[in-house]
């Protein structure tokens, strides 16, 4: 029982990370099998046709998309894996056929910016909070040392230097 839970958790984890694990698992039983609408939709969901932009292929009603889904069905019946089918469509339609680009350069372009932005933001935040609390503590220690009404900058500086040396 515990083993099955573990396996389930593992599968869930992998599928959230890659989002394609199910597809590969589905394709592995191979051979000549009946392909259901759900199988077709599983692949189609990951594709975007150039005619209906931003509409996943599994819910697109145009003739072009119906033809493409029939082709996917044929490919599945021929025993192609989900990944192979997706690759065919990426070659034919270009990188826009998938939800996020697969080409390494484009993929880098797309993912690098948000990730760098997040890293920089976190760094900035930490630095800012640090410098704020730093600035807060310093005047608090100095405040009593400087007598109110001391306008003379030179004297202030002198006092500070004396303090620092001591």
């Amino acid at each position: 029982m515990r083993k099955t839970y573990l396996a389930a958790a593992l599968i869930a984890l992998i599928s959230t990370i890659t989002g394609i694990a199910v597809g590969i698992a589905g394709a592995q039983d191979g051979g000549d099998r009946t392909v259901t609408d759900d199988d077709v939709n599983r692949v189609a969901r990951q594709l975007y046709c150039p005619i209906c932009e931003n509409v996943p292929l599994d819910v697109c009603g145009t003739r072009a998309c119906i033809d493409a889904r029939n082709e996917i069905r044929q490919m599945l019946e021929d025993g192609m894996s989900d990944e192979e089918i997706i690759a065919v469509f990426v070659e034919r339609w270009g990188e826009r056929a998938v939800a996020t680009p697969r080409d390494p350069t484009l993929s880098f372009l797309v993912w690098a910016l948000p990730l760098t932005a997040i890293v920089i933001a976190v760094a900035l935040l930490v630095w800012q909070l640090y410098s704020w609390s730093e600035r807060r503590t310093r005047p608090a220690q100095q405040a009593p040392a400087i007598q109110p009404g001391t306008d003379d900058k030179y004297r202030q500086r002198l006092e500070r230097e004396i303090r620092e040396r001591s």
Binding site: C49, P50, N70, E71, R92
Partner: peptide, 8 residues
């Protein structure tokens, strides 16, 4: 044109 190219 795009989106085509299969058996159809």
């Amino acid at each position: 044109h795009a989106a085509d190219g299969g058996p159809a």
